[in-house]
């Protein structure tokens, strides 16, 4: 199992490196990413959004929806944590298997 995993990982790594051969060199100013849409951001960020920090401009304006999604992700995660952890306190049956005495002591399930 472990050996198979390592073999699989090696294959993944090799594949990624093989593909990275056609990625631009590090710091290449002529790379597609550096000449593409980012040019627009660099040239117009200040004009469009009055902020010198281009990252901020892109984050909060041009791609504001990603950031909105990001906020939603945080909400979803918070909600998930709430659902997962709070549920514990409502358990009434306090049942049998494998429940160790609670570490923080505030959950009645283990003791009951």
């Amino acid at each position: 199992m472990r050996f198979a995993s390592i073999l699989l990982l090696a294959a993944v790594g090799g594949f990624l490196l093989w593909g990275s051969g056609d990625l631009p060199q590090r710091g290449d100013p002529e790379s597609p990413a550096s000449t593409g849409i980012s040019t627009y951001y660099i040239q117009n960020a200040y004009h469009d959004s009055d902020t010198p920090n281009m990252v901020t401009a892109v984050l909060a304006d041009y791609r504001g929806f990603d950031t909105f999604g990001e906020a939603v992700v945080v909400t979803a995660a918070a909600l998930s944590c709430l659902v997962i952890l709070l549920r514990r306190r409502r358990r009434e049956d306090g049942s049998e298997t494998g429940v160790f005495p609670d570490l923080d002591g505030d959950a009645p399930g283990g003791a009951a």
């Binding site: 791609r63 990603d66 999604g69 939603v72 979803a76 995660a77 659902v83 997962i84 298997t97």
Partner: peptide
Amino acid sequence: IFNLYVFLEVAALAAYALLALGERGAP
């Protein structure tokens, strides 16, 4: 394509909460 990733994870995160409900083995 990146926005798709964000939504993918929104759906996934909310789904984890839902799926962890239920029987004892669910988490």
